[in-house]
Design a binder for these strands. Structure first.
Lengths: 124, 124
DNA sequence: TATACATATGTTCATCTGTTCATATGTATA
DNA sequence: TATACATATGAACAGATGAACATATGTATA
């Protein structure tokens, strides 16, 4: 598609350049709005931390309270709480209070799907 | 440190605790190895930057050379090259040299799928 | 080989992020 | 209400990260 052989001077360089220009323009048009791409990056950023990944994975099959997550993953209560806050803000987990405990669970089927997709890539 | 709640003696706290213990154990067993979860986080970390997301998105439909990516996204050549290196290392893009130019393209169908999944979440 | 072009890489620096510690808030029960 | 437990939050600090600049490497052609 982008032809480099069109280099020798006897070939119309102008057209070649125009062709690349077209490709660039077309790609630019298909690109989603900056704001959306920014949000998308922000979303992946949330998945991009092993502590948060572990927490999310822990919630794959069952809801868990903060204390149990901390115990399970050998993390401090504070650390877990901070990370859950981030996951909550990103709408990846939801929670319900039961007595003194707060139980967290996955908020969205996408979470499972996104992680599974990533897994496939990693496991190769 | 672990059993904070075995306090009221008249209720069969032991069974309750054992039940939670079981859940925690089961979750822990289902959890993939730390190393894999770490790699998974690393993978998502790569997606977690808007520059890299833009680059990947640009490559959705066509291969592009470094210079065109830079021009397209209004980035410095250096910046693009650095980011492409990261994408290359993560096996998200591949490249081929053609004369003085290097053309990059998506290396993996997973890339498209992962980004699309993320998009669905973001676009809600 | 000398030159120009395209890309890659090393370094520096400002900023961002995750953890820890201390403390506050919320909840249940004596 | 006083106490203990469970969770949340604020502040500070160390380590990570991305951008920019300068420079090196790779390639084609005169």
């Amino acid at each position: 598609m982008v032809n480099k052989e069109e280099k020798q001077l006897d070939i119309p360089e102008g057209e070649f350049l125009a062709a690349r220009e077209d490709v660039v323009k077309k790609v630019l048009e298909q690109q989603p709005a900056d704001e959306i791409l920014y949000d998308l990056a922000e979303l992946f950023k949330v998945f991009g931390d092993s502590t948060r990944i572990k927490i999310l994975y822990s919630l794959f099959e069952t809801e868990l309270c903060v204390y149990d997550i901390a115990r399970l993953l050998n993390l401090s209560q504070s650390s877990v709480s901070h990370q859950l806050r981030i996951l909550k803000t990103s709408k990846l987990v939801k929670f319900r209070r039961e007595g003194k405990s707060v139980f967290y669970s996955l908020d969205d089927e996408h979470v499972r799907e996104i992680i599974s997709m990533g897994m496939e890539h990693v496991e190769e």
